[in-house]
C-alpha cells in the first residue's frame, strides 16, 4: 500500500537530499481543525503531481505577522529571526504557503532580517501546475457549471497584487465565476487581518465578516472560494450566522482542486 508522503526538512537533510520547495504550513494550517483539511488537500496534490517538497514540521514557528500588526515588533522579530535561522540552515530557496499572511511576511519582511527566498502563494503554485498540465482536472466534478464567487484576501490582493492566479485556478474548474461588487483592488476585508483574528472587534453596528458574507451571498453563488485561513474562518462563520451553511459552502482553492482530482 502506498501512502501519502510528508517529508520534513530534517529527514531530507539527514538523507542528504534537498527538496525543490519548502511548503510553509503556518499556524492555522497546523492547528485549526478546518484549515488542516486545506493543508492535507494541498499535500495530496503535491504528492499526486510528484513535486519535490518538504515541510519544517515541528521546527516551524509562527512568522510573527499577528504580533507585528498588533504592534509587538520585538516579538515579531524574535519569531522571524528564529525562523530565518532554521530556513537558512536548510539552505531553502523557494517557499510555497497557503496563508497570505505568512506569504506576505516571508516574502516582504524577512529579507530585511536576512531571509531571502522566492516565495509564492499556493494559488500561484496551483495555477502554474494547471498551466503546465501537471494537474489534470476532471472538468469541475461537483463544481461543474456552478456559480462560485472568490473573496480576495487583502494580504494576497492589495498587499501583493495577486488577483488573477486564484481566479485562473477557479476558472480551470469549468465553473461560473461570479464577482462581488467589491472585488480585486476594491475587495472588502473579511475582518480578520491586522491581528483582528485574535480579539473581539471594537464596538460598531455590524461585524465585518457579516457585511462581506452578505455581499458574497447576494451573488447567488453556491460556494465561496478563498485563499486564506483567516478569510475561511470569517466567511464560514458569516455563512453560519446567516443560516446558509446547508446550501452555501466555503472552500479553499486547494480543496476545490483536490476534490476535482478525486483525491
Amino acid at each position: 500500500m502506498s501512502t501519502y508522503k510528508v517529508p520534513t526538512m530534517a529527514e531530507m537533510a539527514a538523507s542528504g537530499e534537498s527538496p525543490e520547495i519548502l511548503f510553509w504550513v503556518g499556524c492555522a494550517g497546523s492547528f485549526d481543525d478546518r484549515y488542516k483539511a486545506v493543508t492535507q488537500a494541498f499535500v495530496k496534490i503535491l504528492n499526486k503531481v510528484g513535486v519535490s517538497f518538504a515541510v519544517l514540521g515541528p521546527e516551524e514557528a509562527c512568522t510573527g505577522d499577528p504580533a507585528r500588526r498588533a504592534g509587538n515588533e520585538f516579538l515579531f522579530q524574535m519569531q522571524a529571526v528564529a525562523n530565518i535561522q532554521v530556513m537558512n540552515g536548510y539552505n531553502i530557496k523557494k517557499v510555497v504557503t497557503a496563508c497570505p499572511h505568512c506569504f506576505n511576511t516571508i516574502k516582504n519582511e524577512y529579507p530585511a532580517l536576512g531571509g531571502n527566498y522566492e516565495v509564492i502563494h499556493h494559488s500561484e503554485f496551483l495555477q502554474q501546475l494547471i498551466n503546465e498540465g501537471k494537474v489534470a482536472l476532471q472538468g469541475g466534478g461537483e463544481f461543474k457549471g456552478k456559480k462560485i464567487t472568490f473573496h480576495d484576501s487583502c494580504y494576497l490582493g492589495r498587499h501583493n497584487n495577486v488577483y488573477e492566479a486564484p481566479r485562473e485556478v477557479i476558472k480551470a474548474l469549468d465553473v461560473e465565476l461570479v464577482e462581488m461588487k467589491r472585488c480585486r483592488t476594491k475587495g472588502l476585508c473579511c475582518g480578520a487581518g491586522g491581528a483582528q483574528m485574535f480579539k473581539e472587534p471594537e464596538p460598531g453596528k455590524k461585524d465585518v465578516n457579516i457585511e462581506r458574507t452578505e455581499e458574497a451571498l447576494s451573488t447567488g453563488a453556491s460556494a465561496i472560494a478563498v485563499g486564506c485561513p483567516f478569510c475561511l474562518t470569517m466567511m464560514t462563520d458569516g455563512v453560519k450566522n446567516k443560516d446558509r451553511e446547508h446550501d452555501v459552502k466555503v472552500y479553499d482553492l486547494a480543496e476545490m482542486i483536490a476534490k476535482d482530482m478525486g483525491i
Binding site: T3, Y4, K5, V6, T8, V25, C27, G29, S30, F31, D32, K36, T39, Q40, V43, K44, V55, G57, P58, E60, A61, C62, P66, A67, Q79, M197, F198
Partner: peptide, 20 residues
C-alpha cells in the same frame, strides 16, 4: 510559537492521518 495556545510538539500532528 503560535498565536493560539497549542503545544508546539503538536504542530506536525496534521500529517499523522495523511501518512497512513
Amino acid at each position: 510559537f503560535s498565536p493560539w495556545k497549542f503545544a508546539p510538539t503538536d504542530r506536525f500532528n496534521w500529517a499523522d492521518q495523511l501518512k497512513n
